[in-house]
């Protein structure tokens, strides 16, 4: 896919083999990583207290302690559950639809050259275009509410899944396909036994990208075309200079998106267990 970014977990392989690493060596990434975050938070907390800002500028600043307090308040009063539920339903429906459509379509265009050639212009065009551009149109068609959100999430999440499935299917081992076919397998069997299992790592990588895009889709759709949800809460808070609420929303979104990505990672490890270690690629 387009994302050449590798996950930190894979990177340790790049180090030169140092047998018998010391404790410090093994803990170093964790310690330095936590230190980085702690320093950033401390700076953020302390700077506004040291530097005197005029009242106007001060309106736009908040501190981590304030954000934590706001988060606590939002969760303890339960004020966050309703908007969160609204956002989550849009997210789940949109992502679910994207998987339902993207997977079979990806397998189809991966297996058929003609279909691939015919759909390629559309896939290229829609994948390159920021889906936000369709938002005013989608709002016109679906109104302010759940379905606008679902459609925007769907358009965003569809293409990573579709394109990755396609790539994975294209990479299926021809020999395996031929063997299965010689034993009298139908196209359906070929897809089920060879193509889809083989494409799984690609599909999951696509799913990971799709989750990021879907979260983004929920946020922008709610900013412009919704009446309730976490994004709406944030826009309204921004208008009232409640910066701590804006950041609280941002953190909730970030945590959710990290948690989901992590779950997909677990799924990937579980599903890839039978696979022989792949040679390190990009």
């Amino acid at each position: 896919m387009t994302d050449t970014r590798t996950l930190p977990a894979d990177l340790s392989a790049g180090e030169f083999g140092a047998p018998g690493k010391s404790l410090w060596h093994r803990l170093e990434p964790t310690i330095l990583g936590s230190a980085g975050i702690v320093i950033l938070l401390l700076l953020w907390e302390v700077l506004p207290r040291i530097i005197t800002m005029n009242a106007g500028t001060k309106l736009f600043f908040t501190t981590p302690s304030q954000i934590v307090g706001t988060l606590w308040r939002l969760f303890s009063t339960g004020a966050i559950w309703e908007p969160l539920g609204v956002s989550a339903s849009g997210f789940v429906l949109g992502l679910g639809l994207a998987i339902l459509v993207g997977l079979p379509l990806g397998v189809l265009i991966g297996r058929s050259r003609t279909l691939n050639a015919m759909l390629d212009p559309f896939v290229t065009a829609f994948n390159a275009t920021p889906r936000l551009v369709f938002l005013p149109l989608v709002m016109l068609w679906f109104g302010l509410g759940l379905w606008t959100k679902v459609v925007i999430v769907f358009i965003g999440a569809l293409f990573p899944i579709l394109i990755n499935t396609y790539e994975g299917v294209r990479n299926a081992d021809r020999t395996l396909i031929n063997v299965v076919r010689s034993f009298g397998a139908s196209e359906w069997d070929v897809a089920r036994l060879v193509v889809v299992p083989n494409a799984m790592p690609y599909i999951i990588a696509g799913l990971r990208l799709a989750i990021g895009r879907a979260v983004l889709g929920v946020v922008v759709a709610e900013f412009f075309g919704s009446e309730s949800g976490l994004g709406v809460m944030m826009v309204q808070a921004a208008g009232r200079y409640q910066v701590d609420v804006v950041f609280s929303g941002l953190i909730v979104f970030a945590v959710l998106s990290l948690a989901l990505t992590w779950m997909v990672q677990l799924l990937e490890n579980r599903l890839g267990r039978w696979r022989p270690q792949r040679a390190g690629g990009e």
Partner: peptide, 19 residues
């Protein structure tokens, strides 16, 4: 030192700060 921070930033929908 920077990877965790960057990952958090990258994962959070920063568009949300637009308003």
């Amino acid at each position: 030192a920077l990877d965790p921070i960057m990952t958090v930033f990258y994962a959070s929908p920063l568009v949300a700060l637009a308003p």
